[in-house]
């Protein structure tokens, strides 16, 4: 991406109004106002005022605001006298190395991802089976109705028996699919 931005700094906070009028005219890309309190490390970080024209894309707004936020953060850290690398190290939370111990005393590493992945995969498999069999059931019923097979079948069985048989049959087909894919996954 081409970035060709000229930066201009205004010392007086009175310049905010002129920045707004420049934005309205479309002569500048964006404007921001930083007060002394924002940069004071002893005070809480407050919201910085960002002024943008209505035509500026959300991506550009993100880029400009991220640069300004990061700059304010860097300045606050620099003013506090703390080394940034040390601050990152101090704020870094230690990762727990979890070991599950069974009643028999054996140890096993905790794998949280796997514990979530396996039920997720089975849920997805069940979803596939339900949707595939429901689709088959609907298609074949319409097909039998259209080529008069249904009329022949209805001479031998009641509509309730016919549909119950279809649903039962496709449930069995889904069960076979589930067993096949599930078995393959377990294997």
């Amino acid at each position: 991406q081409v970035i060709s931005v000229e930066w201009r700094s205004e010392k007086s906070l009175d310049a905010v109004e002129s920045v707004k009028s420049e934005l309205a005219k479309g002569s500048i890309l964006a404007g921001a106002a930083i007060t002394g309190d924002m940069l004071d490390p002893a005070k809480d970080a407050t919201a910085l005022a960002l002024f943008i024209p209505s035509s500026l894309s959300p991506k550009h707004v993100r880029q400009v605001s991220r640069a300004l936020q990061q700059a304010v953060e860097d300045e606050r850290i620099a003013r506090s006298g703390i080394d940034r690398a040390m601050l990152t190290r101090l704020a870094d939370q230690p990762e727990p190395l979890t070991t599950r111990i069974s009643p028999a005393g054996s140890e096993a590493k905790e794998r949280t991802e796997l514990r979530l992945l396996v039920p997720g995969a089975f849920m997805f498999l069940l979803w596939i089976c339900v949707f595939t069999s429901a689709n088959y059931l609907l298609t074949t019923t319409i097909e039998e109705k259209s080529n008069k097979v249904m009329e022949v079948l209805l001479a031998a069985a009641s509509p309730m028996q016919l549909l119950a048989g279809k649903i039962l049959g496709y449930s069995m087909v889904s069960a076979v699919m589930l067993l096949m894919y599930g078995g393959l996954g377990i294997a």
Partner: peptide, 27 residues
Amino acid sequence: PPLVGTIVVVDPSDTIVPRAKAILETP
């Protein structure tokens, strides 16, 4: 789209512009 234009920062301390410029130009 290219990001082209002028950004005006009202900052009495005059310290934000060099930092923001460096951050924005870093890929």
